[in-house]
């Protein structure tokens, strides 16, 4: 009756984990975070370019973490996780995107422009 469930380390999700994968995931995200931190502290780029570069760093770090740390791929055991992630993406885009849109419109109408002297306390 109780076959297969006794040893949790035999689960396919656990079997997929390797120390190389975890190390790579950790290393990639650490390097990207250090790069972003360096760019912000050194003021070596114009604000818009800086925003773009750190956003790109964040995006790559997210992908690396999803792949190396969470092991989300299209294999038979993890397809449900991948489906959940894909279904979650639109929600992420909707909430962040519409929030950005409504607040940019709000600032337009209330004349609070980001970077205006009035906003600096």
């Amino acid at each position: 009756m109780s076959h297969g469930h006794d040893d949790p380390t035999l689960h396919p999700e656990v079997q997929m984990s390797t120390s190389r994968g975890y190390f790579l995931g950790f290393a990639i995200s650490s390097v990207l975070m250090l790069v972003a931190t360096f760019l912000v502290t050194s003021h070596s780029m114009p604000p818009f370019g800086l925003l773009m570069v750190i956003s790109a760093c964040a995006a790559i770090a997210i992908i690396a973490q999803i792949y190396f740390l969470l092991h989300i791929d299209t294999s038979e055991h993890n397809i449900w996780n991948a489906v959940a992630l894909v279904l979650f993406m639109p929600l992420f885009l909707i909430t962040i995107g519409l929030t950005w849109w409504m607040f940019s419109q709000l600032y337009l109408h209330t004349m609070i422009m980001p970077g205006m002297p009035a906003m600096v306390h």
């Binding site: 849109w101 409504m102 607040f103 419109q105 709000l106 337009l108 109408h109 209330t110």
Partner: peptide, 8 residues
Amino acid sequence: TMGAGPYV
């Protein structure tokens, strides 16, 4: 009534 305007 936050005032995000007509489009939003």
